[in-house]
């Protein structure tokens, strides 16, 4: 199963084993990871599952839809070129080893 590494703002990291077909957000909340809130439960409404994607991975992720793009303008922490909503990233085998940084805050 693909594994994802989350890097917290303090530099500590968590490696999460994922199940196929779920979103990065679902994998994170299922593991009780601090730093992903996901208030809307994955409906692309709240922008509280914000992550910064490691630059080397950015181009390998599925493209961003317009609604995700608009929501990212409303994130609590600053939006960067590497910003994504983790509920919109479905885990596939080729994402094994994905590295994501967590923002300072989600609300």
């Amino acid at each position: 199963m693909p594994a994802i590494t989350f890097i917290h703002p303090d530099g500590k990291s968590d490696r999460v084993e994922t199940a196929g077909g779920e979103s990065v957000m679902q994998a994170a909340t299922r593991h009780g990871l601090d730093g992903i809130l996901a208030e809307c439960g994955g409906n692309a409404m709240c922008a509280t599952c914000h992550v910064y994607v490691d630059e080397s991975w950015l181009a390998r992720l599925p493209a961003m839809a317009d609604d995700e793009d608009a929501l990212l303008d409303g994130t609590a922490a600053e939006r960067r070129p590497t910003s994504r909503l983790s509920c919109q990233i479905t885990i596939t085998p080729d994402l094994d080893g994905l590295v994501l940084k967590l923002p300072e805050r989600q609300v």
């Binding site: 909340t29 009780g32 809130l37 996901a38 809307c40 439960g41 409906n43 409404m45 709240c46």
Partner: peptide
């Protein structure tokens, strides 16, 4: 961890004013 509760619904009709 309340993520996933259905107090605001879920899916395409999930509360737009949440």
């Amino acid at each position: 961890r309340t993520s996933g509760h259905v107090g605001f619904g879920s899916g395409i009709h999930m509360c737009v004013g949440q």
